[in-house]
Design a protein around this nucleic acid. Structure first.
Lengths: 200, 200
DNA sequence: TTCATTCTAGAATGATCACTCTAAAATGTA
DNA sequence: TACATTTTAGAGTGATCATTCTAGAATGAA
């Protein structure tokens, strides 16, 4: 009976997420978001309640699409390729740090960026960034565990410890990737990852 | 002949740096800076020209005091303790990621935070963040090199490669430290660092 | 003292911030 | 058709943004 919405929630979230991803929470204004989504203030506030509400929806959206997608693809894979070579899955997952974001920009990871920008102060935000980090760490653990079961990784290594090392390095790479203009160190970084992945 | 300034530049920079360190560039307003420094807008603009100018001065100040100080102390040390045990110097340097900042807060590193918040777009800012990262990387290389010369690290390891791994892990720790509320993983992280430091 | 200069206090500026309000438009039901 | 309901368009809100302006206070030189 009511008038139907003229836009698609998913498309709006895509566009808004791009804004926050590129400029961060504080530097993204409602005007930016209106222009990027093509919606008017009324529609945005009607759908999301506030800038914070929209931001949280974007974090959830990013968590589902980008992070969840990558974890499922590379770390807890349904496809045989990575099931049989879990270490390769981890390596390729970590290499996604260098995948260009929207508009071919080097944006890093929205969760890492947000965690750095806002710190742990906003509980609603912290929950989501923490959840994302946990998901990644757990995915890496899962694959390392699989590698040990397949004899592709020495069973003497503490796979939890190793997963944390890799996760820390991954976050470091995301930071570097967003901030640096000179990207030549990239290859060396992946060599570091491979070394850490196989050692012992 | 002119009227002398009533404040000390260094004290002002300390206070302003704390603001930017805690809240980031965008979320720090001139009002915050006025209150933190005790200066009026006129004085701030007279001394630093603009918010950007003050921010750049703070980056330089941080680079000189915090980063430079730590690199000199732990990585290129004048004191015998770390000269004789360069690997311990690196470990202790990396552990400074967990040193509380002003007001006992977990703020991470101003350079890393800034690099993530603003990306590489502002050339003046990028220069400073890049310089800071380079200084750290080079310091770690220097100490690893020293460790090899002393026979405390296998000469088969590529010390540049190793330095980069450690630097990436260091940045990852800074990010995690700023964003997470649960700090229990800290000990494990340092174990990861020690493993990476000694392996091979 | 008088003057040139610089600094300080704080009101005032226009722009932009997140957000709200009003009125019109679009739908299904009756 | 007429009505109830929801969305849309976009002007309008007060607050806050970075910045500037004005007036006065503090100094050393003449």
């Amino acid at each position: 009976m009511p008038r139907p919405k003229e836009y698609q929630q998913e498309h709006v979230l895509d566009r808004a997420t791009e804004c926050f991803w590129q400029h961060g929470y504080t530097a993204t204004s409602m005007k930016h978001l209106e222009q990027a989504t093509g919606l008017t203030p009324g529609s945005l506030y009607n759908s999301f309640g506030s800038k914070d509400g929209l931001f949280l929806a974007c974090l959830d959206h990013y968590n589902d699409t980008v992070i969840g997608e990558r974890v499922r693809h590379y770390l807890k894979p349904a496809i045989r390729e990575y099931q049989e070579a879990p270490l390769q899955g981890i390596e390729n997952f970590i290499a996604t740090a260098f995948e260009p974001g929207p508009a071919e920009l080097c944006l890093g990871c929205l969760m890492v960026n947000t965690s750095v920008e806002l710190g742990p102060h906003e509980e609603t935000v912290r929950q989501r960034t923490t959840e994302a980090m946990r998901k990644v760490l757990q995915g890496i653990q899962y694959s390392l565990n699989g590698a040990q079961a397949k004899g592709q990784l020495s069973s003497t290594v503490d796979y939890r410890q190793r997963a944390q090392s890799l996760s820390l390095m991954f976050n470091g790479m995301l930071v570097q990737w967003r901030g640096a203009t000179d990207k030549r160190w990239l290859k060396n970084a992946m060599t570091s990852v491979r070394e850490l992945l196989m050692s012992n």
